[in-house]
Nucleic acid binder design. Structure first.
Ligand SMILES: [Zn+2]
Ligand SMILES: [Zn+2]
Ligand SMILES: [Zn+2]
Ligand SMILES: [Zn+2]
Lengths: 147, 147
DNA sequence: AATATAATGTTATATTGTTACATACTCAAG
DNA sequence: CTTGAGTATGTAACAATATAACATTATATT
């Protein structure tokens, strides 16, 4: 994300917290800034490192708590297959996420769909399952890396 | 899986290795047996524990190597959001996996589709991305656990 | 000020996964 | 046979990721 986009995202976080009676705190702000500023998914311990540049180097707990908060409220997503985090690019909270991950350069693109693909939704319905969240990670090689 | 199904799966592994000039070895066999016998996704260190009941307790490397082999050849899948493994229920190697995961009881059902859902495939095609593998994990509450 | 709630600080530890190097097995060429 | 190449395992140490438990601080409400 560009610096402007990050600034906007941070203001969104601040507003969101105000509206919901949640606290807009340094760990939460900095964690989001760091994740949003990263070109690729960033691991929790790299967030700790980055955060250490602007505050006392935080303990894992601090960052993991901020990550949990930001995930719950839809500001970031975890790329499970990489144990790493990215800022949400959809601009709103959503139940499902899709990512395209390049195995060569590591870049990740969020592909936002508002609904689970029909063929999957059908299968889920047939089992009487009550869906809460879903996530798809598509691995392969991006156009750039094919050249 | 039932004991019969496991036995069949193991024979499939043996045949597969023979056909491909790969080795059918105790770590590979036991790892598959243990994962297939588990009612829920099983973590690598629990596989180590189980394997320890029938051989000298193995080191992590042994089990991780077997897991890697079994994954590469389509016998097992990793549930990324749980860092745990399940035996494949599709009966053949496939590029994409879908799982329905109950957050309450932990049971996982594999939903096999041979192709990526169309809306996702379109998005991928538009980016010029060359897909290798994909994985979807759907979390929620199974019918039993809703009662 | 007293209280309740939300959030953070701190320490230690648990869980998951990898690196590096030595040893053994299998098959085939000489 | 035996030697060499490729495949797989054995072993020890370690790295990376994540959580538990308990103390303290901040914020808002009474
Ligand atoms: Zn998103
Ligand atoms: Zn790439
Ligand atoms: Zn499968
Ligand atoms: Zn359930």
């Amino acid at each position: 994300m560009t610096k402007k986009e990050i600034q906007k995202l941070i203001r969104t976080l601040e507003t969101y917290c105000g509206d919901k009676g949640l606290r807009y705190t340094p760990p939460r702000r900095i964690t989001l800034e760091v994740i949003a500023a990263s070109k690729r998914p960033i691991g929790a311990y790299d967030v700790i490192e980055e955060m250490g540049k602007v505050t006392d180097k935080p303990k894992p707990t601090t960052v993991y708590r901020a990550i949990e908060f930001l995930q719950e409220h839809g500001f970031i997503h975890k790329i499970e297959s990489l144990s790493a985090f990215v800022a949400c690019h959809a601009g709103h909270n959503h139940e499902g996420s899709q990512f395209i991950v390049c195995n060569d350069c590591g870049t990740v693109e969020e592909v936002h769909l508002c609904h689970l693909p029909k063929d999957l939704q059908k299968k889920v319905d047939n089992t009487g399952f009550k869906m809460a969240h879903w996530n798809t990670e598509i691995h392969g090689t991006c156009q750039q890396c094919q050249a």
